[in-house]
Structures are given as C-alpha cells and as structure tokens.
Design a binder for these strands. Sequence first.
RNA 1: GCCCCCGUAGCUCAAUAGGACAGAGCGUCGGCCUUCUAAGCCGAAUGUUGCAGGUUCGAGCCCUGCCGGGGGCGCCA
Length: 592
Amino acid sequence: MIRKGPFQTGRRFRSPTEGESAPRASSTGDPKLLKWRVMLQHHELSAAVGAAIASAQEAGALPLFDIPNVLVERPRETTFGDYATAVALQLARPARMAPPAIAEIIAAHLRLPDYVGEVNVVKPGFINFRLAPEWVQTVPDYILDPAGDYGRVDLGLGPRKAQVECVSANPTGPITLGRTRGGVIGDTLHRVLEAAGYDVTLEYYYNDAGRQMTMLGESVKARYLQALGIPAELKEDHYQGDYITDLALELVDEHGDALVEMPIDTFAEFARGRISQQQKETLARIGIVFDVYFREQSLYETGALERTLEGLRENGYIYEQDGAQWFRTTEFGDDKDRVVVKADGEPTYRLPDIAYHWNKAQRGFDLVVDIFGPDHHATAPQVLMGVRALGYDSRFVHTLLHQIVNLVRGGQPVKMSTRRGLFVTLDELVDEVGADPIRYFMISRSANSPIDFDLDLAVEHSDKNPVYYIQNAHVRCAGIFRKWAEAGRAEDADADADLSLLVHEREQAFLRKALELGDVLEMIATTYEPHRLAFYAYDLAALFHQAYEECRVLHSDVPEPLRLARLRFYRAAKAAFARVLDLMGMSAPDIM
RNA sequence: GCCCCCGUAGCUCAAUAGGACAGAGCGUCGGCCUUCUAAGCCGAAUGUUGCAGGUUCGAGCCCUGCCGGGGGCGCCA
C-alpha cells in the first residue's frame, strides 16, 4: 500500500546547513502541525521509499519485482540518523544486484518530505535519514500544541473498540503483587491504546460464583461464631487471613449474635461486598480505575452459561462421560478434552470463562487484551478454543501472559508468606513505597521476565532510582518557571520565542527523542509491550538532564533571545514529561 | 512425562516483522558544586548472547537436539 503524503518537491541529499530555516509553526491550523497529526514520519518515509523503488523500476534503473513493505525504523545508533531502512539488503535477491548499488538507485529516485535534512547510503546498503535541524527546532510547538496531539498517534485503523481485562482477582482477599503487575500492565496498555485512538474499556472479571464464595462465606461465619465464643471449625481450604477475622468482628459489632442462624450466603455476600470494595479502593491508590466490573454471577442469572453450553453442544463439541460434560478441546490441538460441567452438575471455571469471552465477542470489540499471570498460562488457550468452537475467529483476543514479582530487601529476597509482617499485598506495598515506584517498576521489565522489586531502591531519592530520575526532569522544568515567575518575568514571555536559536546539540537530541514518542506508542499499541514506555521515559530523562546541564536559561550569560527560546524548550520538555508520566499513570511533581 | 517463560557484561535487564560495531542501569575505577540548576553531569573498563548443529547474503532473535533456572499441568479458580 502506497500512501500519498503531502510531499514537497524532492530535496535529495540536502545538507543540514543548506536548507533555509524552517518557517515557524505556531498556530493550530498550520499545515505543518497537521502533518504531525496525520501520520508518523516513518510511515511517510516508508511510502516515499516504496515510491522511489517504483519510479526507479519505471525508469529502468531497477529490474521489475514485487515491491515489499518497506520497513523504516529508528536505528539503534543515533549516529546513523533518525530513521533507517534495510530494504536494499532485502532486495538484493529479487533485483539480483549488490545492496549498495540498489540503495544508491533508490536514494536517487527519492522524493522526500521537507523535514528530512539528509539522506545517506552506507556500508552494507542501509539508507539513513536525518531530520532537518530547522525542523527539529519546531518540535516544541508540536508538543505544546493546544490541540493536545503530542502523545497521540493515528494507526490508520479508524474508530476501534478495545477491551483490556486485567487483575480479575477473586473477591476473597487482598490484591497480591502478581495481580498488581497484571493491573499495571493492563492500565498502561489502556492508556496507550486510548492514545492510539481506541475507545478502551478497562474491565475486571469478578469471580463471585461457585465454590469460592461458599468457602468465603463459611470462613467468615466460622470466625463470626468463634468471636461470639461459639465453637466453630475452620477447615483447611477455608480462608485463613486476618482480614476474615476483621470482617467477622465487624459483623459482631454491628449485629451482635443476631446472625448466628443466618445462612452461609449472607456471610458470603457481606464479605464479597466488603472485599471487592477494598480491592477497588486499593487499586485506585495506584491509579487503576476500572470501567466495568463484570460479575461471573451475571452469566448464571442471564442464562448465558446454559446458552454457552448449548452452543458448544450444537456445534458438536460436547459429550458426556462419567456423568460429566466434556469439551472436545483436542479438536483444537489440546492434549486431552476438558470437563466443563462436573458430575455433580456444577460447571467448572472453564464454562463461565468461555461464556464471558463469548460475551466479549458479542459486544463487538475489535481488540481484546487478556492479561494473565503465570498461574493461568495453561488455561488461557482453552478459553480461545471455546470462542472458536462457538463460531468466532478468536484472533481479536490477544492473551498477554506475564511472569511473577519477587520482593527484594537489602539485596535478599523477601520470603512471600501470608504471615503477618511480610509485605504481600498491594496495600502494604503502597504504604511502604508509594504509588509511583509501583507503577514504574511493574512495567520496567518485559512481561516475559520476572521482576525483582527492590524495596530499598524504590524509596531511594537519587539518580539510581529511575522513578526519581525521570520525575526530577519534570521538577527541574517546574523549578525554572518558578524562578522565572519569582524574577517577575511575564508568564508567556516565550510565546513568540525564536526557536531557530535551538541549535545546541543537546537540545536537538532531546527534541528528536521527544518526537519519537509517537513511534513508541504505536509500537506498544501493536505489540502490547508497555515496558517500552518505561525505557523510553528513562532515555528521554537522560537526554533532558544532559541538556539541562549545558543549556541554561536563567544564567546571566544567556542572551535574551536565546533565553526565551530555551524557556520555550523547557516548557515543552515539562509538557512532554507530564504526558509520558501520565501515560504511565505516574504523577508529575513540581517539587521533590 | 507434557506445556509455557527464561538463559545476553560481575549483578538486574534492553535489543522495535532476521539487519549496522549486541546496548542501558547498578556495581567498579577516575573526574565535575567559591559562578545561578548535584535527587545532576563527564570519562574509563567489561561479552565465545548456556552448548552443539541447521536455515539465510545476514541469527541474541527462526528450526532441531541437549544443559541449566522458574512456573504450570484437577470434575480447584
């Protein structure tokens, strides 16, 4: 697919110094800003390279072959430029030519957008693009654009509905660290997908039916009776935690012994309500607020469960054996078939899980991301088998599996145990380290890697702690504006600053990185890898601190026009960090 | 026994559909606050990407087989 971009006439091999200074783009309606909004630069470059290949073929400079999708990416080394493509290497075989020669031919036929300052063909056959410095200077206006388009990307998919399901803990106890990781991954994804134009529903599936609820009710009732001095037994599979006793004592306080004859359900319902409320409040402490709490119980009440079983049966995937109903998962490559209704008539967890995903399919989501911990690695595929057995293409569901979280203190692993005094719940972790380190460290690793959560590092206030390192960038910007105001200078003095004065290498490096946010968001929205945001934020902060070191604003030596340009620069930097931190669900403090 | 994840610098981890010399942080060593901003900056050292084959112009990434670590394999969720 070749998209037509708003290309200007080709400026091939233009050197950075050769170009006239770029016109300022400060109003919202400016076509330059519009270009930012319309598509990411690498897509335009990709289209341009594709077009160059086609025109080289037309001119007979290249033989005829099918033009592949041209991948234009950010090279690892910034010395190679801002964008690069290896198509010439790919084309060596179909073109039966040496990659460098192909690259030269492509470069000669390129008609490039005006923001490209330089094109180089190098060694094995790479084509490197460098953004024009004059254009990079206008990035502050993009970041500060009142339309708020910085940190948004258009994936070109049109209106899309997405759902992110995460946490989904049973309402039988406090939120654990494993669930927290899933929650932070999910909420970050939720924020990024919204930035990428999705209408996103953040959803929590709520196991409030079946045996777990019975166990919960029995546990609370036993503690309740015990609190009244009535002998009661707590069985091994009952919930043992102190929070159960606390709930029981609450009932004693409120009702005395009036509930002794009440059924288990009464206790279960009370505990479920309380615990789920606590879970909700705890998650809100780290900025996770769900749009929908989907109750498993509702699948029973609406008859969805029966319809699911019937649907599977009608499609020939259900049979009876030993009194139980089996789902032929082997039809989809499973090792063995799985029970969906037990011999006692109770469904296993699989049936409601499948019913729930059928529900998701029927709600018309274009994309569903299910986030599961390591304990669900085996069962996730079975749910998708269910969706397929019900006649849906299950590819709209992406299951994202993550590894565990370990706590480390003093360089030693903290033994995970439910015993008192050890940090195992999210609430306790928030109490100890605060919300921001939790948000950051939970996405600081790829989901496939286990996390060692270092409790000492999380609260350390130094450049060793990435959380403070990143937030300090925002703090430093805020400090500049605070001093600016204290000096009695006008708040908007930099509104018409001459951005062409932003020629310092470190200013340019920061702005180039800031521009990359769109690429990062696109990547996350298509690969579902939010850890990239944590790495990006750190890299951006590093470039910021480097610029901050050398590019002073309030210093008496700084000429006034440069001072104003830099003020604009730091205003943009502040906005950029505010945006990135917000995408990560973290606060952007003005002072430490 | 089967399935999933991992194995990359002393440690913890990155590496964007297979692409450039494998990069960061921590730690180590050495510099920078009488001049505005040190919760910061600058510099140095560090690799047989677990092992052995294979595919490819090109492999940390894909395939096969081993070795090692973690997790999961219920008519529990």
